[in-house]
């Protein structure tokens, strides 16, 4: 084999390998939609709620809840505990007024959450729920929830927000405790508050106040 042939073969192989490189770079980005599809299918990570629009089919939730509450299983008790947290982009106070409740499957229960806007501007917040164990997700039906819509709070305004839910009677036997965590996000501050971390918080707050 002479040198020219050698170079040609090497060039062709290099071209193919470069295609692999470009393809795998693309594959890295393809993982993003793949991941979202997986989360939607499995109903994990609370990703079914879009923070920007906050749309949920409330009527459907109501129907599912009514169906679940037809038959109360008095023989079982399930402990439901509530956790609250704030995304770093949101300066609110947010807590559950009932930390935990014990319910029978099928029993409709209402609990309340408290939120207060600590900023000097009107903030449109959106709560995103997450349920542990993930297996309990499809047995936990919310009939009314502050997470079904945006919560608009004026500067300094405080609200009590209801959550009405039912745990479906066909909940697997091994689940005795369900943890429901809510994270509140600022719908307008999409960059996760990265800018707020700068040296001059006052200036940034003024900019947000517009």
């Amino acid at each position: 084999m002479n040198n020219a042939d050698q170079n040609k073969i090497t060039r062709r192989l290099t071209g193919k390998l470069l295609l692999v490189v470009v393809g795998m770079f693309g594959f890295g980005f393809l993982l993003v939609p793949l991941y979202n599809v997986m989360c939607d299918v499995l109903g994990i990570n609370g990703r079914f709620i879009d923070i920007q629009s906050g749309q949920v089919d409330v009527a459907e939730q109501e129907r599912l809840g009514a169906q679940a509450s037809l038959q109360v299983d008095e023989s079982r008790e399930v402990r439901v505990q509530f956790l609250t947290q704030l995304n770093q982009n949101l300066n609110w106070e947010f807590r559950a007024l009932d930390n935990a409740v014990t319910v029978h499957p099928g029993q409709v229960m209402e609990v309340r959450f408290y939120a207060k806007n600590l900023t000097g501007r009107e903030v449109v917040g959106q709560a995103v729920p997450s349920i542990v164990p993930a297996k309990a997700f499809k047995y936990f039906t919310k009939m009314e929830c502050f997470c079904f819509s945006h919560q608009v709070l004026k500067p300094g305004e405080e609200v009590e927000m209801p959550l009405r839910f039912v745990v479906r009677p066909d909940l697997p036997e091994d689940i005795r405790t369900i943890s429901l965590a809510y994270t509140f996000f600022d719908t307008e501050n999409r960059d996760g508050g990265k800018q707020v971390r700068a040296e001059e918080p006052a200036a940034v707050l003024a900019q947000h106040a517009r």
Binding site: L31, V32, N87, N89, T183, N189, R190
Partner: peptide, 19 residues
């Protein structure tokens, strides 16, 4: 201004761990 990994913009930090 994208939000691949930023929950506030609809992203997910867990996705980062997968990638």
């Amino acid at each position: 201004g994208t939000s691949f990994f930023d929950a506030a913009g609809g992203g997910d930090p867990v996705l980062f761990q997968h990638v």
